[in-house]
Structure formats: C-alpha cells, structure tokens
C-alpha cells in the first residue's frame, strides 16, 4: 500500500506541487501559553529556520520577524485577551515556493476585510496604535484569516511570504 502523503500547505497555494519530490521542506509546530514575553524567542526560532533554508537576508531580518511578531501579539492580546490559560499554536511550513506561518488563537476572530485603516495618513501617523495589520500586509505576500472548523472553533491567521526568484534569473 502506498504511503499516504500529508497535504503540505505551501506558498505556491493549493494547486500542484511545483517544488518536486526532491525539494527540501520544513514543518515546525509550537504551542505556547499566552505570554507576550515568549514572542521574541518564537520569532528568533522561525527566522533562524528561514535563514538556514536560504531565504534572502532582508526577509529573515525584517519581514518574517515583524509580521510574525504582529500576528502573535494579536493572537495573545486580542484573540486570547491575555488569558494565560489560553494557548497559541504556531505552524510554519517552508519549501522552495516560500514560507507559510499559521497562528491560531482561541478567540472569535475578526473581519480582515473591514480592518483597512491606513496608519500613514497625517491624522493617523501620530497615533500610537493601528500599525499591526498594516505591517503584516506590507511585509508579506498574503494575509488570510479563517476559522478552523474541526474540534473547537479556533481563529487562524495565515501569512504567506513567497520566495523571491534568484537574482541571476536561473
């Protein structure tokens, strides 16, 4: 009997597997209590994995850390409302197409489409808040939100960063 291959969420999307059978893939899953002091260590761990799988330096030092930090902050502060008994799950999938980070909390979620505040307008740039989702959108290729249907309802934010093509075009 042929082994069943688990579906691999990829930056390439759900259609096909452009990476091929020899591609190097990494999957990482963490589950942590709601504690913002953990965010720095989680971000460091994920950024290091991206670097080891040869993502460009700027993506590893800016896009991944800031976007992931924002998603974790949202999950802990808004989703789980700082309740230390509630958990946050982080799944990271890296393959040749890119990097996908899924952050799951125990909150009710939010409507991504209505969260479109622009923090760069003259009126908003002096505000202390309102930059989190904006940064996630600007520093990733795609931000999605959905409710995990099986088991208890969970709010999932998925961030996708595609791997840029090689500079020499090869």
């Amino acid at each position: 009997m042929a082994p069943v291959r688990e579906r691999w969420p990829s930056a390439a999307g759900s259609t096909g597997d452009p990476a091929g059978p020899d591609a190097v893939r990494l999957a990482l899953q963490l589950e942590v209590p709601t504690d913002v002091r953990l965010i720095g260590r989680i971000v460091q761990l994920v950024s290091r994995q991206a670097r080891e799988l040869e993502f460009p330096a700027a993506i590893c030092s800016l896009n991944v850390p800031v976007a992931l930090s924002e998603a974790l902050s949202n999950a802990m502060l808004r989703g789980n409302k700082e309740d230390p008994a509630k958990r946050v799950r982080i799944r990271v999938m890296v393959d040749p197409a890119g990097l996908v980070m899924e952050i799951t909390d125990e909150g009710r979620g939010f409507d991504l489409e209505t969260c479109t505040q622009d923090p760069t307008t003259p009126a908003n740039v002096v505000r202390e808040d309102g930059r989190g989702l904006f940064l996630m959108r600007r520093l990733t290729d795609r931000v999605e939100r959905y409710t995990e249907a099986h088991g208890l309802a969970r709010n999932v934010v998925r961030l996708t960063i595609k791997r840029p093509p090689p500079a020499d075009g090869s």
Binding site: S61, V66, E70, S73, V126, E128, D129, G132
Partner: peptide, 17 residues
C-alpha cells in the same frame, strides 16, 4: 537593535508626545 514591532513603534510615538 534587531527589529521593532508596531507596539515598539507605538511606544516611540507615545514617548515623543
């Protein structure tokens, strides 16, 4: 400094005020 998130940026704005 490695990186700054939106909370860190918010604190800088707050301190500036």
């Amino acid at each position: 400094t490695g990186y700054i998130d939106s909370s860190g940026l918010g604190v800088l704005v707050s301190l500036s005020k």
